[in-house]
Simulated scan of single mutants.
Amino acid sequence: MNAETGKTALITGASSGIGQELAKLFAQDGYNLVLVARSDDTLDRLADVFKSNYGTQQITVIKKDLAEEDAAQDVYNQVKAKDITVNVLVNDAGVGLYGLFATDTDWEREKAMIHLNVLSLTQMTKLFLYDMLARNEGKILNLASLLSITPTPLMAVYAGTKAYVYNFTQSLVNELKETNVTITALLPNATDTDFFNKAGAENTKVTDEVQDPVMVAKDGYEALMAGKAKVVPGGLKNKSYEVLAYVAPQEALASLMHGKMSQKPQPEPENQDDKSSALTWGIGFGIAVLAGIALAVAYNNTSAVDKARYRYKAKSAGNALSDALSSVSDSLSSVLDSVVDVYQTARSKAEQLVPREEEVEEEVAA
């Protein structure tokens, strides 16, 4: 029997994706469950699976669209009416919307998204947190996003709602630090769920980088149980994105994210000449390496006069090679220029924040 048997976890958005994977982890650890989503049929099937596979004792299914007015209050009332004590609250339910804010997106859908991602999450947290503090026991997991810490053109309102979730959660971390109640923000990168299809962003470049919801849920679950303030799943790569979001200029981040959120280009037919050219370069490079090794051995075994003759020929060949490579250098110049521009901008921003050595000496002397 698990130590958590008898405790209850309430998970919103439990019918699919990260929410479903989190519900599975709670079931495996012996929690009773309250599953909330718009589809009660899906939740009923999940309940049967959890009872069969993990022996879950009590599963309560609540069909509710949390984008509706007072939906969070209704969920809370149903839970209280059943005399269920919620030990863990997971605010996973959320939606996105893709497109240019001024011209592409629909206000009614944006309003519903703000209600779901912000208002319902906040009200759910307020209602259940009050009871947790009365018991001085409980845990809350709020689903934010890596987009919560960076500007995101083409998903501006969604990113704004997640920025609220992250800031709200970290504020509560401080308010709760003298209690036995903890709250955790989960900041995943793009995840392989139905999110992008529902948001109308299924053909964006970022979908080539989606991560496994099982991994995201596992990292979030472990951080929640450890009482951590936040977690960025996915290892060093995603943590480097987090660091970049804190130190890079906002305009550079916005441009980067605009590129990631843009539509994938239409695939072009593969050019046979390009394949032949690539193969030729590859074979030629291999031959050049082998030839270089052979020449080096031969050179070391020649007389001083022959070595001088070879050095003269090598210089002439080097000049020709330099001319041939100049065109390659020109083709890369625009890319290098853009990298230098980003570096210089970031460096300028950093220098504005760090005092010069003379200023530090003057302050110390004062």
Results as ranks from 00 to 15, higher is better:
66 L>Y: 11
67 A>E: 01
67 A>W: 07
68 E>N: 14
71 A>Q: 13
73 Q>K: 14
74 D>Y: 10
74 D>S: 14
78 Q>T: 06
80 K>P: 09
81 A>N: 15
81 A>M: 09
85 T>V: 14
88 V>R: 03
89 L>Q: 11
90 V>L: 09
93 A>G: 01
95 V>N: 10
95 V>E: 00
98 Y>E: 11
99 G>L: 13
99 G>V: 01
100 L>W: 05
101 F>M: 13
103 T>S: 14
104 D>E: 14
105 T>F: 09
105 T>A: 15
107 W>C: 04
108 E>C: 08
109 R>S: 03
114 I>C: 13
114 I>M: 15
116 L>I: 03
119 L>P: 00
120 S>Q: 09
120 S>V: 09
123 Q>E: 09
127 L>F: 10
131 D>H: 11
132 M>K: 01
133 L>H: 06
136 N>I: 03
140 I>V: 14
140 I>M: 09
141 L>A: 01
144 A>G: 02
145 S>P: 10
145 S>E: 04
145 S>N: 09
147 L>S: 04
149 I>K: 13
150 T>C: 01
153 P>V: 01
155 M>S: 08
155 M>T: 00
155 M>Y: 04
155 M>I: 03
155 M>N: 08
156 A>E: 06
158 Y>Q: 07
159 A>M: 01
163 A>Q: 12
164 Y>H: 14
166 Y>S: 00
168 F>D: 15
169 T>V: 06
169 T>L: 01
171 S>E: 11
172 L>W: 00
177 K>N: 08
177 K>C: 04
177 K>R: 15
179 T>H: 15
179 T>C: 12
181 V>H: 12
182 T>Y: 15
184 T>E: 15
187 L>M: 13
189 N>S: 15
189 N>P: 06
190 A>Q: 14
190 A>P: 13
191 T>N: 07
193 T>S: 08
197 N>S: 04
